[in-house]
Computed example of a mutant assay.
Amino acid sequence: MAKVMKSTMKETRHRWCRWHVLKNAKDRLGKVYSKHKRFKHEFNKLVTDETDITKFERTWDTLVKKYRLSKNKFLKRLFKYREKWAKPYFMGIFCAGMTSTQRSESANHMLKRFIQRATPMHLFVAKFNEFQSDRNDQESKESFVTNQVPRKLRVGVPIENHADTIYTRAMYEKFYDELFESGRFAIT
């Protein structure tokens, strides 16, 4: 894909999926994940939140040293290609908020837990319908609970009022966290 994009879409930057980067890190660094409970949190925070190149590289270096991963081939390769996936290297590029193939990949991951790869088509359809029904039930329960418990608005800005009317409580909490974090920035 990257080769074709270079020749046909010269102004486009090919980006690696953050979801895959994190999943592969978990798979390839399993011992570190299980042995050092803070590593996963620190690594995910770095990959997800850091927007400054210098801070990203400094924190990466600190993590590698702290957890004695300087010889890890996977991390060496990941760092070598950081401009393809790390957030600070995409700050000036419009990506429409997409950092990964998260929707299709996370749905694919959930389906794999319910449906075996070699499942015959008629069983796949039955299991998929069961899965879809379960998801719909969960959504309905969340909507019901959302409508039963009134929320106290915390900031009092119009966008918060609007979010309160359209989001479930779980999505509203995610929205509120973003709204709260946005208070750190000066808009010019």
Rank of each mutant, 00 (worst) to 15 (best):
D137E: 14
K71T: 11
F56E: 01
T188H: 08
H14P: 02
S34L: 10
L153G: 08
H162T: 10
L78P: 01
R154K: 14
T8Y: 10
K66R: 15
L75N: 09
S70T: 11
L69V: 07
F128V: 11
T59N: 10
R113M: 11
T8W: 07
I159Y: 05
R77A: 15
D52R: 01
G183L: 14
A2S: 14
L69D: 02
Q148G: 02
F175I: 04
Q148K: 14
S70M: 13
I166A: 08
Y81G: 00
L22N: 05
T48S: 04
W60H: 04
D177F: 02
N24W: 03
C95H: 15
K80W: 08
V145G: 01
E160Y: 06
R68A: 15
R103S: 05
N108S: 13
G156C: 07
T51W: 01
M5A: 15
E178R: 14
Y33L: 03
R28W: 01
M98V: 03
A163K: 04
T165V: 06
F128I: 08
R77K: 11
S182N: 10
N129R: 10
R113G: 11
I93M: 08
K3P: 07
L46M: 11
L179S: 04
R82W: 00
E181G: 02
T51A: 03
A170S: 12
R77S: 15
R151F: 05
F74R: 03
K73L: 08
V155K: 09
L46H: 06
F131Y: 15
R113T: 12
K10D: 05
D177A: 14
I93W: 02
K45F: 00
F90E: 00
M171Y: 08
F43W: 13
T119G: 06
R58C: 07
V4H: 15
Y176E: 12
F175W: 05
L46D: 07
N161I: 02
R15F: 03
M91C: 13
S100C: 06
N147I: 05
T8C: 12
S106W: 03
A107P: 00
N24M: 04
E50N: 13
M91Y: 04
I53D: 04
G183R: 09
K10N: 09
Y176A: 12
A2R: 14
P88G: 03
T119R: 10
L179P: 07
E142Q: 08
Q138S: 12
K76D: 09
F131V: 06
Y172K: 07
E181F: 06
P88C: 02
T48M: 04
T48P: 00
K6R: 11
T165W: 03
R13S: 13
N72K: 08
T51L: 01
D61R: 10
Q138P: 00
E181H: 09
D52W: 00
K127F: 12
D27T: 14
A170M: 08
Y172Q: 04
F185N: 08
H109R: 09
F180K: 13
L111S: 05
F185G: 01
P88Q: 04
M110T: 05
L29A: 05
V157Y: 03
R58E: 13
Y89T: 00
R15Y: 00
F144D: 13
V157C: 10
T8I: 06
K174P: 00
A186Y: 07
N161C: 10
